[in-house]
Design a protein around this nucleic acid. Structure first.
Lengths: 332, 332
DNA sequence: GGTACGTGATGAAACGTTTCAATCATCAGG
DNA sequence: CCTGATGATTGAAACGTTTCATCACGTACC
């Protein structure tokens, strides 16, 4: 159907190899024939079939990325960072959304391996699936994103969540708070647990009380409900630290709707610094993760391994988060 | 490097064609040999090379999707809808982000055509680029998403923005507002203009004043700034309708920070009904677009054209948006 | 005039599948 | 015992590239 190199060759009255040369090493072919061939290409509307090219080459120029949830600004920014670097270095990126479902992850891994992606970036749903391990063993370079598995020998890029919790704790303690609520998603999630660990470490030895409120998911609605309960209860913390910004936005809504002023009546600190944090009704203080940077670094590590497998040595990179102070924790 | 069907055949002691049959029509092969072959596949860790398969087949099972901005929840939900249907119908989806840059769009179109995607879903940056047109002419089925170009003969799925503006107008007028501000992005954007048209249509013949405030982009920050100015100025509208939710969130922040109550002092209505609308400090009324449905419909149209090109006839589908009323426009 | 060399162009092989006509084995019916 | 039919398996061709050894043709040099 679509015109092939052969059709172009016929039309231009040259051999098939010459057309290929025009496409891939134009300097190896004389000015005159090059023009003839290019004209034929234009006339026929020839578009090269990269499947055939890659089949012949035995390797592709595309990378696979599987994230947990593209709707999440955290992953979205990471994907953006990866995409930037990939394009810059001449790789195409195939974006996939596992939706935190192992079955979807599995299907995408299969699909990407069948497509012979050159390398893989992934935030695995579970610890390390059979298929992912097989993929690695078969020789597809792999980088773990937002994960760090000491048992697995490959590159990884993650963020130090303990340090993030510590930053939060120091900030709140420094602002004079002595009773702090930590609203968190399931503590079975490493992130949630690590941030709590950091928070506790920051207040260790000080006369500070921490109330842990665990909710079923990192969604605004749960933050709202947790806060309503908290406000009704007897504890009366003066600050709330949330395991992510969505929870914090929920808490903020609860505060506004019950007439509490933020930060005067209650201080509020989120995590992730999503775009909406700055634009919340009361701009939200938050712990920012260098998402774009994570993505760019992960992509660079992967491409390095793809392009120079022999000289490559695996690296586990851990970024430190950063505190962004806005209205919601400002002291008067 | 990676084991091929040939290696499997050797290992299993059968011919190459038989292995292919085991893979593609297992019923055509006897129980015994099938088992032998499957065992060989497992032992060798064989993964089929879909590039070769598609090359031979002359057509792939993947669809391309190019959107303006994946960070935008609107496009994100559409992509999700498309992905759902695509997977369900046995197609893989290649996600691309044009970032509203014609150059990026162009590059992705080229890439996807080289990969021989079976069909294309796209929200074009500009009117209709040379390359997109060429792609269509060469026979790649194409569906326009959130666009509707009467000059172009292909399927499209869009939303009626005039109707959306009308819904908004009727709602606000019905709530008794007689002076309404419309905070909008550049009116050169069709969406912004159409929504204004609808708004005007809703108040036509009534004693209602509309103040149009045009800002440079559909971002919360601009909504905030516009609102600060608006509050300082003399107009004093009782309601603000925003061309999207981000602007509305900005306006909400301005209101909260200047001590205005929503909706008592000023009513607020957004557009898109993004996830955060419901979780805003004051839950935001909004005009909802059936994004998931748009995506699903677009994908179904495309797959229909891909699978039955002869019986297919192009359709231009226009969805109607829907009003979601929350606190921000609730009348006491 | 012969040799060596450089520049362009050529043609065939190979990549890993799928498909399909051809072959082979088996068996039922006459 | 032969014929046909059925079912399983085979082998070769084809898809569209890239690569590489080969070849044709001048040109420069001795």
């Amino acid at each position: 159907m679509a015109p092939s190199i052969k059709d172009v060759a016929e039309r231009a009255g040259v051999s098939l190899g010459t057309v290929s040369n025009v496409l891939n090493r134009p300097d190896k072919v004389s000015e005159a024939t090059r023009e003839v061939v290019l004209a034929a290409i234009a006339e026929l509307g020839f578009v090269r079939n990269s499947q055939a090219a890659q089949l012949r080459a035995g390797t592709s120029r595309s990378l696979g990325l599987i994230v947990l949830d593209l709707a999440n600004p955290f992953f979205h920014d990471i994907a953006r960072g990866i995409e930037d670097v990939a394009t810059e270095l001449g790789y195409a990126l195939v974006l996939c959304n596992s939706d935190e479902q192992a079955a979807r992850e599995d299907r995408y891994l299969q699909l990407l391996e069948e497509q012979r992606v050159r390398g893989m970036l992934i935030t695995p749903v579970g610890p390390m699936s059979e298929r992912l391990d097989a993929l690695r063993r078969r020789g597809t370079p792999t980088v773990l994103v937002d994960r760090h598995d000491p048992r697995v020998d490959c590159c990884s890029v993650a963020v130090d969540d303990v340090a993030g919790g510590e930053l939060a704790g120091e900030h709140l303690v420094g602002a004079g708070h002595r009773r702090i609520a930590y609203v968190t998603g399931p503590l079975s999630l490493r992130q949630c647990k690590d941030r709590l660990t950091g928070l506790r470490r920051a207040v260790a030895g000080l006369d500070v009380t921490i109330d842990v409120i665990e909710v079923p998911a990192l969604k605004a609605r749960h933050g709202y409900e947790a806060a309503r309960e908290l406000f009704d209860g007897g504890g009366r913390p003066t600050a709330v630290f949330c395991a992510n910004d969505l929870l914090a936005l929920g808490v903020l809504r609860a505060a506004v709707s019950t007439g509490r002023r933020v930060p005067e009546d209650i201080a509020l600190l989120g995590y992730d610094d999503i775009e909406f944090a700055a634009d919340a009704a009361v701009p939200l203080s938050s712990v920012r993760q260098p998402t774009l940077h994570i993505g760019r670094t992960a992509a660079r590590l992967l491409v390095e391994e793809c392009d120079h497998p022999e000289s490559h040595s695996h690296q586990q990179i851990m970024f430190r988060p950063e505190l962004v102070v806005r209205e919601s924790t400002r002291v008067a």
